[in-house]
């Protein structure tokens, strides 16, 4: 994968409106390499939309989103996204990962090793031949992570990846996310789960009603929230789940 890093990502006064409703309201921020970033906020705060804007699935209604080095259309993507509900193709787990590599233009002879490696890293090697859509929710989400892993993205967006999973599946997903982080991938994750934010995050972006209210390192955010909304959110979300 040629040319240099795509980070940092710069948002300048980005707004997004749909159906006459403002969902993202003039957000400016910069996402740098390194610490994992948690986008925290209540349901409907605009976390998912913000993430889709960053990932390029949505176009901002006004102003700009700039990557340091924009991806060329048609070139392999250097960013990946894992959604709340994984979308699996009607083929084997193995073939789902191989598909992502094919789309990215990886030549066929190289795909096998990459697929096996990434299935291994999420602990799904034994299910490689199984049809992806009949796997459990947790297994499908791990497969979605393997699909992202195979491409060794520079940035990984995660949109509430464990919101519909049970605690043990959630733990497995979280450990894979930590492995991404350890391998040097920039993790940007939306969640409303405070415990998860603490476990996985280095810094918090707190979003409320489409606006960026607060940005702080995790410890500081939880011990001394600067804004009333953040304080109320932390209080309201207890106990830590």
């Amino acid at each position: 994968m040629s040319n240099g890093p795509i980070l940092p990502l710069r948002l300048a006064d980005v707004s997004f409106a749909a159906g006459g409703r403002t969902i993202i309201d003039r957000i400016s921020l910069e996402i740098e390499t390194g610490p994992s970033t948690i986008i925290l906020g209540a349901n409907g705060a605009g976390k998912s939309v913000l993430m889709r804007l960053m990932h390029g699935l949505l176009k901002p209604s006004s102003d700009r989103i700039d990557w340091y080095a924009p991806e060329r259309p048609g070139a392999p993507r250097k960013q990946a996204m894992v959604f709340q509900r994984p979308v699996m193709l009607r083929r084997s787990a193995y073939a789902n990962v191989a598909y992502a590599l094919k789309i990215a233009g990886i030549p066929e002879p190289q795909r096998g090793a990459l697929v096996r490696d990434s299935l291994e890293s999420v602990g799904l090697s034994h299910l490689a031949r199984r049809s992806a859509r009949v796997l459990s929710g947790g297994e499908q989400q791990r497969l979605a992570l393997a699909r992202a892993w195979a491409l060794h993205p520079e940035v990984l967006f995660l949109d509430e990846p464990t919101a519909s999973l049970d605690p043990s599946a959630t733990r497995e997903i979280e450990s894979v996310i930590k492995a991404f982080d350890a391998a040097g991938t920039k993790v940007v994750m939306a969640t409303h789960n405070l415990g998860q934010a603490r476990r996985l995050g280095d810094e918090i972006l707190f979003i409320n009603q489409g606006r960026l209210v607060e940005r702080a390192p995790v410890e500081q955010f939880f011990s001394k929230p600067q804004s009333a909304q953040a304080a109320a959110f932390i209080k309201g979300e207890l106990p830590w789940t």
Binding site: L57, R77, M81, I103
Partner: peptide, 25 residues
Amino acid sequence: EYEEQLRSLGAGRMSAALTLLWDTR
């Protein structure tokens, strides 16, 4: 159902159409 995922992977419309043809076989 697939659009966001396929676009996220970088699939163009042409390859998306082929993928869907196979997936809805």
